[in-house]
Every structure is written in structure tokens, then in C-alpha cells.
Design a protein around this nucleic acid. Structure first.
Lengths: 111, 111
DNA sequence: ACATCTTATCGTATATTTGCGATATAAGAT
DNA sequence: ATCTTATATCGCAAATATACGATAAGATGT
């Protein structure tokens, strides 16, 4: 029955939703914050900073990578992650586009 | 076993995650888009615009309302929804804070 | 070759989300 | 009072997400 009807929406709507979904967990927000603060690539250090098991963190990193919010390269025995700021720029722009519309209409809001 | 460990993160992280979560579905993005375009309050008209059943749309509206992204008031036999642009302002600011950090560190990104 | 260290993946249990039909609720119209 | 219209809620089925331990994979060091 009720799978996901995501296909029925526009690509932009899906893209925005996917971007939001990738950020829709405090652990992933925390990971992005760490990567933003230290701009040098971080690896399993994230595991020490989060109250989660290594496998769980790895899973969250994978999700962020799949969604395109971060990039990951293998550096010897360890992995190095960085934020894909280009993706953030893109989606920040789309969000702002939505917000801009809101601001314009703000005065006339009725409820 | 593995419920949600959301309590283990800061309030800000949770707030941002909840905001993102509310937007993490194309249907809800579409709803927000409609509400942004027509600034007059929309009710079940949204149902006609979306490829979803009335009950499903109602559920999405409820989620958006619970998350604080929209407001809803009862207007006679029908419901009237508007975007809570204040909430958007707040979270847009927090997102931009994150993005700003990114831009600063952009040059030194290593992967 | 072997041990070690780091990270990814698998398997699994549980919780949450998504979607719909059916039903309830509430206001207006007849 | 009853019917209609508009929304919300309930109950359910199926899909996803979350989390962990166990294990695999890959590189480095001895």
C-alpha cells in the first residue's frame, strides 16, 4: 500500500526534501557542526565527540555523503570527511528563495 | 534496543534537526511552497493540488503545525493555514550561521 | 606472516514515517 | 432535525530510520 509517493513531486521538491532529510537528525547536525568548525578533515575523531557507537556514526556519515552534504576520501587506514560547501550554497539559495517569498508576503499574512 | 538518542544532543541541534525533519518530505515542501505563493490562508485547496489523499495531506499539515512551521486557525467549517515566517526567520538565521562558517573555511578545505 | 588500528558493512531489533480508507467531528445549509 | 461539506483522527499495513554488536576489509607496523 502506502509506500512513498515521492515520485509524484517535482525534482526540486525532492531535492530540497532530501537535503532537509539529511539534516533531520541531531547527530548529523552535530557532525556537520564539527566539520564546519575544524575545516581540516576529520575522521573517526567524530566518534569520540558523539555519544554513539562507531558503527552508528559511520552510518550517519554515509547518509550525509550519499546526500552529497559531505565528501569523504580514504587517507591510509583512516577516512577523511569534509563538508561539500557547494551543495550547501545551492540549497541555501533555494531555502532563501522560499524565505524571500515569505518576507514579501509577511504583511498580508492572515493567521 | 536502539531507540533514539536525541536527548544526548544539545537543544539547538535538536531544534535544527526538527526543523529540517519537518521539511524532509516533498509533500511538505510543496505545501510550504503553496502557502508561500498565495499568502492568503489556504485550506483544503491544498488537497486538490497534491497527489495525496485528504487524510494524508491533513497529517502532513499537522506535522508542519506541530513543528511550528505553519499556523492553523479554524474558519467556520474549514481550516486556514499560514506559514509561521517567524520560525523560518529563526532557522534561516541558524542555517546561515552554519553556512557562513563554511564559506570562511572554504579555501582550506582538504577533500 | 601476524597483530593492530581504523573504518565500513552486515544482521537484527525496535521505533518512526508514510499512506490510505473509514469514521468522527463540526459548521453551514435546507 | 437532517443533509452536506470540510477537516481531523483512528486503525492498519508497509516502508524507513535508528542504533548496536559482530564482523569484514584495508592499511600500517613488527
Amino acid at each position: 500500500m502506502a509506500i512513498h509517493k515521492k515520485e509524484a513531486f517535482t525534482q526540486k521538491e525532492q531535492d530540497l526534501a532530501n537535503f532537509a532529510k539529511a539534516m533531520a537528525h541531531p547527530a548529523r547536525i552535530a557532525i556537520l557542526k564539527v566539520l564546519a568548525q575544524r575545516n581540516e578533515c576529520i575522521c573517526g575523531e567524530i566518534v569520540n565527540l558523539l555519544p554513539l557507537a562507531q558503527s552508528t556514526v559511520s552510518q550517519h556519515l554515509k547518509e550525509l555523503k550519499t546526500a552529497g552534504l559531505i565528501t569523504g576520501t580514504i587517507d591510509g587506514p583512516r577516512s577523511c570527511y569534509c563538508i561539500n560547501w557547494k551543495a550547501f550554497e545551492k540549497f541555501n539559495g533555494e531555502f532563501n528563495f522560499l524565505f524571500a517569498k515569505l518576507k514579501v508576503n509577511n504583511e498580508k499574512a492572515c493567521c
